[in-house]
Simulated scan of single mutants.
Amino acid sequence: MKVQKIIYSIAIVCFVLIGCKENKEPKKEVKKESVALAISGMTCEIGCAKTIQSKLSKKEGVIDAKVVFTDSIANIEFDANTTSKKDLIAFVDGIAGGDLYKASESTSTNTSKEHNCSDACKEKCEHKMGDKTACKEDCKMACCADKKS
C-alpha cells in the first residue's frame, strides 16, 4: 500500500511540474507607429473628446491616445503588429453606434510633444517670449494645457 502511495505521489508531482512549465515563446517586438486622425462630430470636450480618448486607450494595440477637442485631432501611438491606421479609423467611426463621429487621417501629423495649436488657440492663448512661444497662464484651452505639461 505504501509503494502505491509513493508511485501516485511521484505521478502527481510529475504532472504538476509538466503542467506548470513556463511557456517561453519569444515576445514579438513592438512596432510603434503614430497617426493623427481628424475627427468630425465632436461637440464637447468631456462627453466627446474624453470618451473617444478613453475608448481608444483601451483598444488592443494602442499604446497612447490623446484627443484634442479644440483642434478636432486624435494623436495615436500604436503597435503596427496589432492594429493599423485603417482599424483605428474604423474604430473611431464605430464609437456611439457609428452615427456621431467621422475620422480620417489628418495631413498634419501632430504627434510630437510640442503641440501646434490652431490659429484660434494661438490668438487667445499664446504670447511670444523672445524667440519662444509660451501659453498665457489663464488659458484653459486644450492646446495650451498640452504645452504646459
Results as ranks from 00 to 15, higher is better:
residue 56 L to D: 03
residue 56 L to W: 05
residue 56 L to G: 07
residue 58 K to C: 10
residue 58 K to Y: 13
residue 60 E to H: 02
residue 61 G to Y: 15
residue 62 V to G: 05
residue 62 V to S: 06
residue 62 V to L: 02
residue 63 I to E: 03
residue 63 I to V: 03
residue 63 I to C: 00
residue 64 D to L: 01
residue 65 A to G: 09
residue 65 A to K: 04
residue 65 A to C: 11
residue 67 V to A: 10
residue 68 V to I: 07
residue 69 F to D: 12
residue 69 F to V: 14
residue 69 F to L: 08
residue 71 D to V: 08
residue 71 D to S: 07
residue 72 S to Q: 03
residue 72 S to I: 06
residue 73 I to R: 12
residue 73 I to V: 10
residue 74 A to D: 10
residue 74 A to S: 10
residue 75 N to Y: 09
residue 76 I to P: 00
residue 77 E to W: 10
residue 77 E to T: 14
residue 77 E to R: 14
residue 78 F to L: 07
residue 79 D to E: 01
residue 79 D to S: 03
residue 79 D to N: 07
residue 79 D to R: 02
residue 80 A to P: 01
residue 80 A to V: 00
residue 81 N to A: 01
residue 81 N to M: 00
residue 81 N to P: 11
residue 82 T to W: 10
residue 82 T to S: 02
residue 82 T to F: 11
residue 82 T to I: 01
residue 83 T to F: 06
residue 83 T to V: 05
residue 86 K to S: 12
residue 86 K to T: 09
residue 86 K to A: 06
residue 87 D to P: 15
residue 88 L to S: 14
residue 88 L to M: 05
residue 88 L to I: 04
residue 89 I to H: 13
residue 89 I to V: 08
residue 89 I to Y: 12
residue 91 F to D: 09
residue 91 F to L: 01
residue 91 F to C: 04
residue 93 D to L: 06
residue 94 G to F: 12
residue 94 G to M: 08
residue 94 G to C: 09
residue 95 I to S: 03
residue 96 A to S: 11
residue 96 A to W: 14
residue 98 G to Q: 05
residue 99 D to E: 10
residue 99 D to N: 09
residue 99 D to V: 10
residue 99 D to T: 10
residue 99 D to G: 03
residue 101 Y to R: 00
residue 101 Y to E: 07
residue 101 Y to W: 01
residue 101 Y to M: 02
residue 101 Y to V: 01
residue 102 K to S: 05
residue 104 S to E: 03
residue 105 E to N: 13
residue 105 E to K: 12
residue 105 E to Y: 02
residue 106 S to G: 10
residue 106 S to R: 12
residue 106 S to E: 04
residue 107 T to D: 15
residue 108 S to A: 09
residue 109 T to R: 04
